[in-house]
Amino acid sequence: MNKKIAVLLGGTSSEREISIKSGRAVLKSLLKSGFQAYPIDLQSYSIIQLKKETFDKAYIALHGKGGEDGSIQGVLEYLKIPYTGSGIMASSISIDKFRTKLLWKSIDLLTVPDIYITKKNKASLYFSERQKILELGLPILVKPNSQGSSIGITLVSSIEEIDSAIQKAFKYDDNILIEKFIEGKEYTVSILNNQVLPSIRISTKHYFYDYNAKYKSSSTQYFCPSGLNITQEKELKKIVISAWKILGCTGCGRIDVILDQENKFWLLEVNTIPGMTKRSLLPISAQEVGISFDELVLLILETSI
């Protein structure tokens, strides 16, 4: 055993707080399992030092930009240090919601209709893009293109709210997505080493599963088993594994979907470094098939690249 593991956490993204919680939970578990595990906060630590300090592996518990986007993965490959999660290419594509959806569309998977806007073409919004937004129909979701944890997202129900929602999203990213809001039941499906774990149905009193519903609200409920019938569960697994493989993802991750009122599954987004906090969804799915939190951490470590 006695391997030296760097648990990469914190960082500088807007998801820093969640990352620290995930990293601490993973660290505690690795120490319990007998590893020499150390918390490495990349806000104040140069990743190049990992090689000098003879770490055997890196467990990535970073969320968002600078951790989930392929950049850290690239440095770790240069240093020849094995790491958890997806590789450089899959990570960089998966954090980009727009390009992820392009790949999904290429194999005929259902994705929510959207409009992609960059800061460069922001000026044209009041002409051609504005008409396209109206064609989507209200309500719509305005979100940063490369951001997780529902940060910077606004549900827009009237034309008057569009401009402020766009300005808010641009605070977090130079590119944003405006998506048609599909009413239905939200599900998330975890994947571990190409095995699709049981789906979870998310029930929230919020109008959609926003940041507060994810991390603060005590009324948010998670159902696993999700209540889908056998046929639906089978269909969802097929969709999810196709969505996972076309992106080239490896290790573990999570894909969010919504089931509309006509019983169609729509893909929303993928998360290549799922949270590992007490409220996180991957551990809930794993528990349903008899995998404890400590076993899950070890399985993720074993799938390292």
Rank of each mutant, 00 (worst) to 15 (best):
K216M: 10
Y209S: 04
A61M: 12
E161F: 01
S199C: 09
T154G: 02
L282I: 15
I20M: 10
I159M: 08
D96E: 13
I241R: 09
K278P: 00
I153H: 03
I18G: 04
K4D: 08
Y45E: 08
G275Y: 02
A169D: 02
A243L: 11
Q147P: 01
S157Q: 13
L31I: 14
N2F: 05
T231V: 15
L259W: 05
I191G: 01
L31A: 06
L62G: 00
V196Y: 10
K168I: 14
I246S: 00
Y116C: 05
K3M: 13
I47S: 08
N194L: 12
S91L: 07
I284A: 07
I162E: 01
E179F: 01
R254S: 06
K101Q: 12
K234V: 03
I230G: 01
T204E: 06
Y126M: 09
I255R: 03
F265E: 05
T272F: 06
H206A: 13
S92W: 08
G66K: 01
I159T: 13
T303E: 15
K264E: 11
S218I: 15
T154F: 06
L267S: 06
S304E: 09
A286E: 03
K28G: 00
S190H: 04
K51E: 13
S86M: 12
V75F: 12
K143Q: 02
K28L: 08
N175Q: 15
F127C: 01
E17F: 06
T204S: 12
G227D: 03
S150P: 05
S71F: 07
K32C: 02
K237E: 15
T54Y: 13
C249T: 04
K97I: 02
S92A: 14
F35E: 00
I255W: 01
S86F: 12
A286F: 02
Q195P: 03
P274V: 09
S285T: 04
N175Y: 10
D163Q: 09
D114Q: 14
K28F: 04
I191F: 05
R201G: 01
T54Q: 15
Y187K: 07
K171A: 08
Q43F: 10
I72L: 11
V240R: 06
I246H: 00
K143S: 04
L8N: 06
R24F: 14
G23R: 05
D96Y: 10
S14C: 14
L298K: 11
K32Q: 12
K119W: 05
L136R: 06
L236D: 02
A213S: 12
T204H: 08
S124K: 14
N175S: 15
